[in-house]
């Protein structure tokens, strides 16, 4: 009962965040910018890599949606101080975090849906592959949103946060093999790519779609890493949301 009570209000705060996100359609449209530009480059320069780039952009779009939580949570906390109004209310900090992350997730989902439809057209996949990709996307979003929320609580100035958002999105999203195949990545660092949430997620999605051959142990490594990372990141952020809602 206490467990249910802790999450009560998540849906309501999700609705609040979603309503705010939908009030800003330009931001939603611009969220597809990075993926769109990269896809155009791949289409022009290396069309044979398009299936990889499409599945990678799907993973990246969910990762990026998670990162929007960083800006939003920091903005509400630093510019509006509304987190205090909510934290000094019966709404639990974890419901506040999950509601915000989910609201932003749903608000920005049109980009991901468009990419998903495009991916289905370009890369035919089985029902099992489809479900596996959904699982990968959910895990990537969970990791990204959790890390983003935690980071948002650490700064007192919006300007200090922007470089972090950019750094995380690029270091984890653009540098490793997310938009390009895993075999173009140095062989000796292959394991690292598989345990990173973005490139590991992309590799799993591509393997599920049948366009990237992955050894059984590599699938296990990537899936275990992704699952554990999602679990740990989410659990830590739930704990941290409590801890940071009330300063010591």
């Amino acid at each position: 009962m206490a467990f249910v009570r802790r999450w009560k209000g998540t849906g309501v705060f999700l609705g609040t965040e979603l309503r705010m996100t939908l009030h800003d359609p330009l931001a939603i449209a611009s969220s597809a910018l990075v993926e769109g530009i990269l896809l155009v480059f791949v289409w022009v320069l290396a069309r044979d890599l398009l299936p990889f780039a499409l599945l990678g952009s799907l993973v990246y779009s969910l990762f990026l949606i998670g990162q929007y939580v960083l800006s939003e949570a920091a903005y509400i906390r630093i510019d509006h101080r509304l987190n205090e109004m909510y934290h000094a209310s019966p709404l639990s900090p974890e419901a506040y975090f999950l509601g915000m992350a989910s609201g932003i997730g749903i608000g920005y989902i049109p980009t991901t849906l468009a990419l998903f439809v495009l991916a289905l057209v370009v890369v035919p996949m089985t029902a099992a592959g489809f479900v596996a990709i959904l699982g990968v996307l959910l895990a990537v979003w969970t990791i990204s949103a959790s890390i983003a929320y935690t980071i948002s609580t650490l700064f007192k100035d919006m300007k200090a946060i922007w470089p972090w958002a950019s750094l995380i999105a690029n270091v984890l999203g653009v540098v490793p093999p997310v938009f390009y195949p895993l075999d173009r990545w140095p062989v000796e660092w292959r394991s690292l790519a598989l345990v990173l949430p973005t490139s590991g997620g992309a590799a799993l999605a591509e393997a599920a779609a049948g366009i990237l051959p992955l050894a059984q142990d590599e699938v296990v490594l990537a899936a275990t890493a992704l699952g554990l990372e999602a679990l740990v990141a989410f659990a830590f952020t739930v704990w941290w949301s409590h801890r940071s809602a009330r300063e010591a």
Partner: peptide
């Protein structure tokens, strides 16, 4: 928490609500 309401210093409403 159910017994209190807080308006924080320099608090602002959600601009997009």
């Amino acid at each position: 928490r159910p017994l209190i309401g807080v308006v924080p210093q320099e608090g602002k409403p959600f601009f997009h609500l």
